[in-house]
């Protein structure tokens, strides 16, 4: 019986994801991004079929198991874009390092000023780290992985929607800098957006996404406990 529910959970997840990709291709919008759309669809199916969210746990474990090798794969785009990184090492490293610290600090301080509880303040601090790494980093900082995943995905959407316009208003026209900013703040979703602006933007965003995750993972265990 429980095996059947697991198969059902997996099938619903795969089906929702496939459907969401098809929908996103036809109607591209922040509301049809695969993660948002699939999550809503899965919850709808689980609730309407009477399967308790707790019974979805085994299916979840199987998929989260594959998140590890998926994260390891992120080394490949970094390796492929190493020439771009070496050519622009100083602006790239300094830009993404300072920017990662600013966005982390701003998030924790704002959350505090707005009176949000500690579990949110910690979970929101790493919202610019790419999701597969952020959900692993969250427990290290005593945050909640599900909350962090939501903040990460929301940040991906916010940066993709707001970023290109904001940078144009601020006079940031240099393609490398635009790519770096999108990748540092909005990780995978920002990188996908940067690719549409051009090849250099895409490469810079890919580098920024991976390196900002490394950088934030290294500094967050020291900075977040002080700020929270």
């Amino acid at each position: 019986m429980s095996g059947l529910v697991t198969v059902f959970g997996l099938a619903v997840t795969v089906g929702s994801y496939a459907l969401s990709r098809a929908v996103a291709r036809r109607y591209p919008s922040p509301l049809t991004t695969p993660v948002f759309f699939s999550t809503a669809l899965i919850l709808l199916v689980l609730v309407s079929s009477g399967v308790h969210v707790a019974d979805y746990e085994p299916a979840k474990r199987i998929l989260v198991f594959l998140l590890g090798p998926a994260t390891v794969s992120l080394a490949v785009p970094l390796y492929k874009n190493r020439q771009t990184l070496l050519r622009h090492a100083l602006p790239a490293l300094l830009g993404l390092g300072v920017g990662s610290l600013v966005t982390l600090g701003a998030a924790v301080v704002l959350a505090r000023v707005l009176g949000l509880p500690e579990v949110i303040r910690v979970s929101i601090s790493i919202k610019s780290v790419t999701a597969p790494i952020a959900v692993e980093l969250a427990p290290i900082l005593q945050g909640n992985p599900s909350l962090t995943a939501a903040f990460v995905i929301a940040t991906g959407m916010i940066g993709t929607m707001l970023g290109p316009w904001l940078m144009t208003v601020m006079g940031i026209h240099d393609p490398l800098s635009r790519g770096l900013a999108l990748g540092t703040i909005s990780h995978g979703q920002g990188t996908a957006q940067a690719v549409t602006e051009g090849e250099l933007q895409g490469a810079a965003a890919g580098i920024a996404m991976s390196l900002a995750a490394v950088f934030t993972s290294c500094v967050a265990p020291f900075v977040v406990p002080i700020l929270k």
């Binding site: 602006p91 830009g95 600013v102 966005t103 982390l104 707001l162 703040i185 920024a208």
Partner: peptide, 24 residues
């Protein structure tokens, strides 16, 4: 939460973009 996410993302994007552009 939304306000925290939007403002911190905007601050980060401006800092990365402007500093990288200046240094570059």
């Amino acid at each position: 939460i939304l306000m925290t996410l939007v403002l911190s993302a905007a601050a980060g994007i401006c800092v990365v973009g402007l500093s990288a552009q200046m240094l570059g």
